[in-house]
Write a protein that binds this DNA or RNA. Structure first.
Length: 667
RNA sequence: GCCGACCUGGCGCAAUUGGUAGCGCACCGCACUUGUAAUGCGGGGGUUAGGGGUUCAAGUCCCCUGGUCGGCCCCA
């Protein structure tokens, strides 16, 4: 046996003693694991000749995952210490943290969280070692006889269907991690786990916190029992934990539900019902400006404006297939015109009317209103269409998940030959419009069909053509393209535009979706140049998704600091004293005459208080004028961030404001 | 829909072991007239989400309904 082996260690060829582990290879305390030939391993793992080994630091993406995974184990140990009857579910790391699921008789209480944190802290301080041990299926089954969920995972190990639980059993050999007390050498706890883990619990330190309690279905299936889930977060240091909590606070400040109330933009009166919003005057201004601009752009891009009612007889949604496929997402029908005699016998059958969950069938009927020729195509129908969806009570969420919403919905009818050109122009149209609203950081997702799955309708040739066209269009855009294989709807492939907001969160915005199903179901066609009848391709396209949702995204993106062109109040005048009100009113009147949403604050508050009020209202331009400005024929600007530009000549000030509005600048 | 928490004047919050509701902001009035984030004084406003129950007594305890929040499932 050779005394030394050759390694590639962090890219450098090195010779080390045979049987060396990561503990010998890495002196840096930040290294908590190693990547050996591409696989994450514990530091205790022995490297072999010719291995390629890299350090995994605790503050790397992999290192943070390991830290959080180990913290989840400590949580589970703490839970079982306090409640030995708690049975384990799964406990993986997630973005910024981890969770662990438990099967317990009584749900956890918020008070218990503090107790658990204390117990976790005790475990962490005791410096238990995480020791990996490979076991056979039968050994594991024997050792974990008291953990039925783990046994289920073991039995599923070889199955194709194991989505969740991969962190526990992985795909290869099974392993159990023993938590070993360093004083006594005793195994104090153990868990089925693929690993890797930190060398010991002490490395978790004090940068962890339990964050929330929730229920979760076992293996993510609604038909299964519900487990109690505890979420937590873990960071290499207390400071990083604090920074993380501050980021959450920043996100909470941007929450559109909070800003909607603070800025008096919209509300959800309980009297109306869950998920049904009303827009107040200030929110109404923003929404109207958003819509008006969208209309103007659509008009310039060759869209026709159409309108359709909110309700329809059931046969329309029978033809479209919505009632067969999505009826549980629709409001129940209204039965009209039914006549029943005294004995309850129906004398005259009624009609079921439904609130519409989608606009497309209506637009198809408009298409069908006349015989179409290839000369009519592409036909682009656009509507701000109000739709109603019966969202489950637990999922409604501010303006992002509602039961009544308005889609900026368009349906494009094109020949197959024109499909590529149309898709290219519609993608560019969508991206440019989103940029005008201030979102600039995008990536695309291409959802394609799973050839194995038979749910997809339409023949192979058109799927192939459409998918390659979408892929080409997406690639040509130069944006990052994320494939989503199997993610297509049954009726066609789609591109969705994902936008990153000011604090890096991504939102699914626009979708461009091909549909091979509805043209078939409604039997729409056009006369081709050779006189034959052909089926047009149909493209669904929503840009905002829904106006309500887009409104929410913009509110959070701007943190309520809407750029002047969208701001409900663009300019407020603040005279230093009443004597200067007439002078400043003259300026405000000029702005109003130019179409600017400007007011003057003539209340008898002190000017400092007025500045405070309008800063809190996030008015982009505060114009202040006193004796100095009056004498000089100028005004002074104060902006939302507290900065000021004093003594700006009136003409210049007006031009500056108008330019900012026209150019959609942020100030 | 499921699990848990919660719902007090427009908004944010208080109310000892159950003993018939307070504060700040906002609002209204009066005074003050001030150069870049809160002038002072006074006033009005709540059958504690709605309904039912326990109790001598319920904002506090129990049940039902509605709504909100955090998750799960879902999101055409």
């Amino acid at each position: 046996m050779p005394e030394n082996i050759q390694l590639t260690l962090d890219g450098v060829s090195t010779s080390v003693a045979a049987g060396a582990t990561g503990f010998e290879l890495f002196q840096d305390k930040k290294v908590v694991a190693q990547r050996v030939n591409g696989e994450l391993r514990d530091l205790a793992h022995k490297v072999a000749d010719n291995d390629v080994v890299e350090a995994v630091a605790i503050d790397s993406a992999d290192g943070l995952g390991i830290l959080r995974h180990s913290t989840a184990h400590v949580l589970a140990q703490a839970v079982q210490k306090i409640n030995p009857d708690a049975r384990l579910g799964i406990g993986p790391p997630i973005t910024d943290g981890f969770y662990y699921d438990f099967d317990v008789a009584e749900p956890f209480t918020p008070e218990l969280m503090k107790t658990l944190e204390k117990e976790m802290d005790r475990i962490i301080r005791s410096g238990q070692r995480f020791v990996r041990r490979v076991v056979s299926d039968s050994e594991a089954a024997k050792e974990l006889a008291l953990e039925p969920n783990k046994l289920e995972l073991i039995s599923l190990k070889s199955s194709e269907h194991l989505a969740e639980g991969a962190a526990e059993v992985g795909s290869g050999e099974l392993s159990i991690y023993d938590n070993v007390d360093p004083q006594s050498g005793e195994v104090v706890w153990k868990d089925l786990c693929r690993g890797p883990h930190l060398p010991n619990t002490r490395m978790i330190g004090n940068g962890f916190s339990l964050t929330r309690l929730a229920a979760a279905y076992w293996r993510g299936n609604e038909a299964n029992k519900q487990l109690q889930r505890i979420y937590g977060t873990a960071w290499p240091s207390k400071e990083e934990l604090k920074a993380h909590l501050e980021r959450l606070e920043e996100a909470a400040k941007r929450d559109h539900r909070r800003l909607g109330a603070e800025l008096d933009l919209f509300s959800f009166p309980e009297e109306i019902g869950s998920g049904l919003a009303v827009f107040h005057p200030k929110g109404g201004v923003i929404r109207r400006v958003m819509e008006d601009y969208s209309r103007a752009q659509h008009e310039a891009a060759g869209y026709d404006f159409v309108y359709s009612p909110h309700i329809t007889k059931s046969n329309l949604f029978e033809t479209s297939g919505h009632l067969a496929w999505y009826s549980e997402g629709m409001f129940p029908p209204m039965r009209l015109d039914e006549e029943v005699d005294a004995d309850g016998v129906v004398r005259k059958a009624g009609q079921d009317y439904y609130l519409k969950p989608m606009n497309c069938p209506f637009h198809i009927l408009i298409y069908k209103a006349q015989a179409r020729s290839y000369r009519d195509l592409p036909l682009r129908m656009f509507e701000f269409g109000s739709v109603y969806r019966y969202e489950k009570s637990g999922v409604v969420h501010g303006l992002t998940r509602v039961r009544g919403m308005t889609q900026d919905d368009a349906h494009l009818f094109v020949t197959q030959e024109d499909m590529e050109a149309e898709l290219t122009s519609v993608l560019n149209f969508v991206l440019n419009l989103l940029r005008d609203y201030g979102l600039t950081d995008f990536y695309l997702e291409l959802s394609t069909r799973d050839p194995e799955n038979e749910k997809f309708v339409g023949d192979d040739a058109i799927w192939e053509a459409a998918t390659s066209t979408l892929a080409k269009v997406a690639t040509d855009s130069g944006l990052e393209l994320v494939p989503d294989p199997g993610g297509a709807a049954f009726y066609g492939p789609k591109i969705s535009v994902q936008a990153r907001d000011a604090i890096g969160r991504t939102w699914q915005m626009s979708t461009i979706q091909l549909d091979f199903n509805l043209p078939e179901r409604f039997d729409i066609e056009y006369a081709a140049s050779d006189g034959t009848k052909k089926r047009p391709v149909m493209i669904h396209r929503a840009l905002f998704g829904s106006i309500e949702r887009f409104f929410a995204v913009l509110t959070e993106h701007y943190a309520g600091h809407f750029p002047p062109w969208l701001a409900p109040v663009q300019v407020v005048g603040i005279p230093v004293a009443d004597d200067f009100a007439p002078y400043l009113s003259g300026v405000i009147d000029q702005l109003k005459a130019s179409g600017v949403r400007a007011t003057i604050d003539l209340s008898d508050e002190r000017m400092q208080k007025k500045i405070r009020n309008h800063t809190k209202d996030k008015v982009p331009f505060q114009l202040i004028a006193g004796g100095d400005d009056k004498d000089a024929g100028s005004v002074s600007f104060r902006y939302r961030d507290g900065s000021q530009v004093n003594g700006v000549k009136i003409d210049e000030a007006i031009k500056l404001i108008l330019d900012a509005i026209t150019n959609k600048e942020q100030v």
